[in-house]
Design a protein around this nucleic acid. Structure first.
Lengths: 153, 153
DNA sequence: ATATCTCTTGCATATTTATTCAAGAAAGCG
DNA sequence: CGCTTTCTTGAATAAATATGCAAGAGATAT
């Protein structure tokens, strides 16, 4: 089961050559000794959170920074102690000194329901895009804590 | 002809809510008073260079940093005086003091054929991913100079 | 005013990507 | 070891996105 290696190869390939379709990626992977179908690549790209940019100069798959950092999200659960909210703001308590780091990762998600974050030493204030979305943000952040995704792709 | 406004609305929408398909975007735009079809949105997203991320948590359109900066590319032609190459490196001459800025924009393209850039005051060294790709890089960079895309979206 | 060009768009459809279903491989367990 | 459960995958197909073509709307020129 070569999935792990294939995932690495995919990242390697799309960061070194212009890949404009899954069929094209399929070919490139074939040359590298990975024989899979388009269906598998569709799933791989999804798991890797790879972005597809369709610009005037053509289509291209890229390793999106947001997706890269998404991997970190799997780990921040261990640094978070609690997540609560009142009617207008979400407050996260972290391990000592880890608030800045956790806040940065949350920022990197660019989640539309989050207006911004402000971090102290072990506390983060997360302001929602609207007071009506406090719950949405709360639930989203709490779901991060329970993620078990420990794959270290 | 409302294209300009629609483009702005699209950016506004996708940065404030999770949009997972062009049909969905179509709906959101409809509510904002823009009635267009999926075909038009496909073209709009391409013109705006908007990225589509397909991750485990779902599909989502985002304003990709790379695409944003691509707009700047339209202007750097005015700051570039010449682009030449020998067998192994491309050398760009810019207006005085503009090398750093131009190099940064080139870097932001994350073009797979470019390994890296080094900028002085009015000179940039661009090292290709391989000596075999000097021509590719040269042609790509020269094409930037001639771009007429002056749309200030 | 008429002709010619360019730009934008929708419709129909081609192309590309995602998913359903079933099969096979590996892992855990009694 | 046999049984169940979980993963991974391909083939077929559904779903989503891109595009060829033609029509209409402005420009500009004659």
């Amino acid at each position: 089961m070569d999935k792990q290696n294939r995932h690495f190869a995919i990242k390697q390939i799309i960061s070194h050559q212009v890949i404009g379709s899954q069929d094209e990626l399929c070919l490139a992977l074939g040359k590298a000794g990975f024989d899979v179908t388009q269906a598998t690549l569709s799933r791989d790209l999804k798991e890797l959170g790879i972005a597809r940019i369709n610009a005037p100069e053509g289509v291209r798959y890229v390793l999106h920074a947001e997706s890269e950092e998404r991997r970190l999200v799997s780990f921040i659960g261990y640094e978070i102690e609690s997540i609560d909210a009142n009617e207008s703001i979400v407050v996260i308590k972290t391990l000592p000194g880890r608030a800045q780091g956790v806040a940065e990762i949350i920022d990197s998600m660019h989640h539309p329901a989050i207006l911004g974050t402000l971090a102290g030493d072990n506390t983060i204030f997360v302001s929602p895009a609207s007071v009506n979305r406090v719950d949405e943000v709360l639930r989203m952040l709490r779901s991060l804590m329970s993620e078990k995704r420990l794959q270290v792709a």
